[in-house]
Design a protein around this nucleic acid. Structure first.
Lengths: 221, 221
DNA sequence: CCAAAAGTGTTATGGATACACCCATGA
DNA sequence: TCATGGGTGTATCCATAACACTTTTGG
């Protein structure tokens, strides 16, 4: 149609998904054993190629669903990673996304996808610039948190304030004062106390809270 | 090399540059008349195709230099724009960048590039999702401003506090109190008073200030 | 002398921080 | 009874916001 376009180079375009979860006080990232070269058998992010008939965003959703069965996730684009030799096999331009998952809600079959939840502070060696992507994603979430309480995507329906606090601490990398933290939480209209008590993590039992999602979104105009 | 890659679709990948400048109290965006279809002769962002032997970041720098002669600019990636029908001519995945330019330092020959500085609040009709990109870029800069005084890339060497204030107002879209603003500025170690006086914009004359770039970067660790 | 922009301080308020002890329970 | 994590208030400090008049000078 446009001869100007002809003669331009074409590229493989992939998507890489950084899937964050939370467990036992630590932020986790879902990794998978690579099925094919290069680095076959090594750990890597969930990824796949963009197809001609889908948008890049749709490709990311598709890859996520294909690999994990998870649908309708909270997901944001992180950016394009386009250095020439990022993929040692072929030139591939990758667009990275990050997703936040409530691990309880979606019971993944880790075996069938050759996956595992890596502790954010104990990542294995990763190729393709994946480590940079993960670090960048963490910073991005931290920034986003200032304007939107996205962490609730990571937590189970019911959670204790200690769980919420340690999650925020592990994302920000900083200790939070318990009393100041709780006072702030009590002022938030979208975090509600429930009658449930968690007796797993402490002898005394901790009150469980839940997010009121309508309030979250209403609050954001 | 990797048969898995073969059979995947390939794409044209382009870069689009949102070049911001500042003049007479208003934020500006550099646009250019398109040389080829689709939308030949219409206004659009500076753009070009990524080549096989260069990174996407390098492509953005190259396009900027080719079209404007400007080199070594402050530039950030905004993200990938990959909907299927974004470009009505062909499927093209675009990675957008924004740049901040001191218009005085780089005297552009607007005629030769068919360009013009559009007022941010008076943009013409733009295709290819360029308007969305521009809006997103403004928000991004606003966010970035909280952690880094990037506006100095837009200002001339010497500037008055009123110029700085109106620039910030036009980026944020909000009025700032003059006295509070000035008090805050006086506390910043990287904004220095000079002996120069600007007599163009007022009868009385306004003191000109300058950024101390070492202080800016030192401050950011 | 007047129009137009530059310049200048004080007060009030709210949010952030620092800080230490008692409580309830299961083992 | 004791070890473990849950739960609670107060005082201080600092950043932010609101607010109006005087100064200088070119025309």
């Amino acid at each position: 149609m446009n001869e100007f376009y002809t003669g331009q180079d074409k590229f493989y375009v992939s998507v890489d998904c950084i899937i964050f979860g939370y467990e036992e006080g630590e932020l986790k990232v879902l990794l998978k054993k690579r099925d094919f070269a290069p680095f076959k058998g090594e750990w890597s992010l969930m990824g796949g190629f963009v197809r001609a008939n889908e948008s890049v965003d749709d490709a990311a959703k598709r890859v996520l669903t294909e690999l994990t069965g998870i649908d309708h996730l909270y997901m944001e684009q992180l950016g394009a990673f386009g250095s020439v030799d990022r993929d040692p096999g072929e030139r591939v331009i990758s667009v990275a996304y990050y997703a936040l998952v409530n691990k309880d809600e979606y019971k993944l079959n880790l075996e069938s996808i050759n996956g595992y939840w890596a502790g954010f502070n104990h990542l294995p060696v990763l190729g393709f610039g994946h480590k940079d992507m993960i670090q960048k994603a963490r910073k991005d979430i931290l920034l986003k948190l200032e304007s939107e309480p996205v962490v609730f995507h990571l937590l189970p329906e019911l959670f204790t304030l200690t769980q919420l606090q340690t999650l925020l601490e592990s994302i920000s990398g900083e200790k939070i004062d318990k009393r100041n933290f709780r006072r702030r939480v009590f002022e938030l209209p979208y975090i509600e106390k429930t009658d449930h008590v968690d007796r797993i993590s402490s002898r005394r039992g901790a009150t469980q809270y839940k997010f009121n999602k309508e309030q979250v979104y209403q609050r954001l105009k």
